[in-house]
């Protein structure tokens, strides 16, 4: 059952609740931004796509020389 704000307590706490909501949204945005920057700073990333990638194989004698 949905909780309906019928008590005046809800009105009194509105400012505080809005403040907490804004803080949580800002925190989520910061964590997201932090993740984006950290990933960008990691350098080149190759996705694992179940495909053999020759550049990752150890070099063999006489191959490619």
């Amino acid at each position: 059952m949905t909780i309906r704000a019928t008590h005046e307590l809800h009105a009194r706490r509105r400012g505080r609740n809005v403040g907490v909501a804004v803080l949580l949204a800002a925190f989520a945005a910061i964590v997201f931004g932090l993740s984006v920057v950290k990933v960008q700073q990691t350098g080149g990333i190759e996705g694992f796509d179940h495909v053999l990638r020759p550049e990752m194989l150890p070099p063999q004698e006489g191959v490619g020389q």
């Binding site: 059952m1 909780i3 008590h7 307590l9 009194r12 706490r13 400012g15 505080r16 809005v18 907490v20």
Partner: peptide
């Protein structure tokens, strides 16, 4: 939780001035 249980838990004698605002926490 229902409306009834929510309202039962609210102490109705809380004076208005005792309610902390967001500013108080800041």
């Amino acid at each position: 939780m229902t409306d009834a249980s929510l309202h039962q838990s609210i102490p109705r004698e809380i004076p208005r001035e005792a309610e902390p605002s967001f500013r108080d926490y800041v």
